[in-house]
Simulated scan of single mutants.
Amino acid sequence: MAAAAIRTQSVLRHVLSCSPRSLRASNQRRWAQVHDVRFLATTQAPRNVIEKYREKLAKKAQEEGLGDINALKEAYKEKIETLRKTADVVIPSSAPAPPPTSSPPPAAEKRIEKRKETESPSGIKPLSSILDLSKVSSLPEKELSAIWRFHHAAKPNSLCAVIPSGTFATIEQTARQFPQFVLPVPHPEQGAEMHFLQWTWDRATKSTTVLFTQLAEYKARGEFAQPHTTVTHYTDLAEEKGVVLMQGQVVEDRGVKVDDARWLVMCLQRFYGGWDGQGGEMGKERQEERRRLLEWFGRGDGRFDVGRLMEEAERMG
């Protein structure tokens, strides 16, 4: 085990030694081809609601005699805060599940408050402090998913997903074998930026968490490096409802956008087997190549190659 760790560190040093300039030069054209990113099992609401509805909001401000959108936001500040607080509760099963961006229905006034529970020693909140498990366990999967999305819809730096438990079991099995890896984030004008990920498990909260850190930050600070994104998977409902609930948080001012974090999570799921079995023979070939890269990195094998890693990530565009 110690020898494997030493070899992994050797591979990390090799990745870190790659010149950012050479990465930009060799991959600028390639990353320019990457477009829309699908996010496994999630229907996260658009994050920048202001931009999407700017025209309607401007018209609303004009109708109410307000100067601009900022004035409209200020006038409705109290109502917005009320809606955000409402998003932090579980809606009764008798109420219809709202779409992620809709206002809560009247029945939400008779909401069920989530139970207050302390975090585990790891600092992770249990799922029961976010949802009332005794209530949501009786809901159909579609309604449960809608509630989970609604809970995160008003939080601009959050990620969420509802993952089939079988899919997550495959991902977790691979993660236990290879709990560390590196992934690239494409920047069309600059090539790619490398990020280091590490899986952790917390038995007290039945959760699995992935920490994402910029590789440059990891190089500079090692084990004291601060992650820019934390993604936690809750398995409380895996057997009963057949789903694993995922939530993530992107830390502000760490140089990473929510879209970058979303891309990293998608890459994580793809490399760790979340999309295995798709794409026929070609898909199987790509699956095997991703598996080889994971194994080579985890075992410190000199065959691990950053160029091949980026080629595989590019195929997800």
Score class of each variant (00 low, 15 high):
G273I: 14
K56I: 14
H187I: 09
R303C: 10
Q226P: 00
E109Q: 05
D260A: 08
V11P: 01
R291C: 08
L23A: 15
E109R: 06
T174C: 03
T232L: 04
S165C: 15
Y218G: 01
G298T: 04
L293G: 07
A41S: 07
Q177M: 15
E141Y: 02
I80W: 12
E55H: 05
T8F: 03
K60E: 07
A32R: 04
L294Y: 13
V34M: 12
L139M: 14
T42D: 14
N70G: 15
S19N: 03
I147A: 02
R84K: 12
T213D: 01
K52I: 07
Q214Y: 07
H195F: 13
A4S: 02
R291T: 13
S138Q: 14
E193L: 08
E74R: 03
A4N: 13
E189T: 14
R203L: 08
T118H: 02
L23K: 00
R176C: 04
G166S: 14
E63P: 01
I80Y: 04
A169E: 08
V15N: 04
T118K: 10
V37S: 00
S158C: 11
G191M: 02
A58K: 12
Q173M: 06
R149E: 13
L245N: 04
L268F: 15
A107H: 10
L12C: 06
G273H: 02
F224K: 04
G274Q: 12
P227Y: 01
W296V: 00
K219S: 09
Q198K: 12
L144E: 03
R254H: 09
D88V: 06
K206G: 00
T200S: 14
V34A: 06
M246L: 14
L131I: 13
L57G: 07
I6Q: 07
H187Y: 10
N70F: 15
D68G: 03
Q198C: 09
G248S: 02
F39W: 11
P98R: 04
